[in-house]
Design a protein around this nucleic acid. Structure first.
Lengths: 158, 158
DNA sequence: GTACGTGCAAAATGTTTGCATCATT
DNA sequence: AATGATGCAAACATTTTGCACGTAC
């Protein structure tokens, strides 16, 4: 296989530091996958990431994509979503935001930060505290999805 | 709609009426599946429903379970959720409620109605209206999940 | 040097589909 | 009688796993 090729860049250093901080080994594959994930505006599936990153890191395998995504999720650097469709989607875990999910196409989009924040701010922390103690459930985060259809699409009656 | 709390035949009639109302054919399989789904406290997967209902309706197939669930979802009698795990879960669509989803076990539970309602009521209708017009997205419903761990479970580090 | 990550392919899920038969309307 | 649902099995899609090798620490 390939000897270690390390592109010099501020961002790479930042990623290395991030990984080190979480006790993750920093491999070319992981670095590239995380960089791709973090730069994604939407929410790629494992397969999409695979094809995207494959061009940059040779010999990347889909298994590694899954392994890496799982590692990233486990240490809190990424999040896994399972929208309406059967395929899991991922994003780099920057901060909590709201998603829209189209019932027609299955597409998942972000709600812009400002709006997301306003929506999430509606839920008072005390209520969450109360839920935690009532349900004996430690809440790590609240996930909000707006289910519906993008304008121009109709739900077929049936 | 008049809902008598009465023997099985009454409930069966109610289901038939419900189906007729939506233009769904009422077969034994569908009736049994819907009854099972509606009585479920948790959120069965297709497979769980299959094994549960199989005892009551002879020769039920998994394909029919999927077909039926899809038909129910399409006409608004059921909802499909895709929690953290890779398996879709369903419930009879009574009213909107909040779910907890355990990061450790993947278990999905309902938040009791009163608490769910209080949480959902936090989101003002005007904000949703605003989101709809900003995003060009027709919101059918808001889905809230509390992600975390049930007490007594720890997230394992590595 | 060692523990862990990787690639490959095969296996384990989970879901959908084609077609002949059967039941509901 | 006609339309649509069912069952079966096979196709399909997605994710996980075992193993030999390579690499970061």
């Amino acid at each position: 296989m390939r000897t270690h090729t390390q592109p010099d860049s501020k961002q790479t250093d930042a990623i290395e530091a991030l990984f080190a901080d979480r006790g993750l080994r920093c491999t070319n594959q992981r670095r590239a996958l995380y960089a791709a994930l973090a730069s994604h505006k939407y929410h790629p599936t494992a397969e999409q990431l695979y094809y995207q990153v494959r061009g940059r890191v040779q010999g990347l395998s889909l298994a590694t994509v899954y392994n890496t995504l799982e590692a990233l999720c486990r240490c809190g650097l990424a999040r896994k979503y399972s929208g309406e469709a059967g395929t899991a989607r991922y994003d780099a875990c920057v901060h909590n935001h709201v998603h829209t999910c189209c019932q027609h196409t299955g597409a998942v989009h972000d709600v812009p930060d400002e709006l997301s924040q306003r929506l999430l701010d509606c839920i008072p922390a005390e209520l969450l505290k109360e839920l935690e103690s009532e349900l004996h459930f430690k809440i790590s985060h609240v996930q909000v999805q707006l289910i519906g259809v993008h304008e121009g699409h109709q739900i077929l009656g049936g």
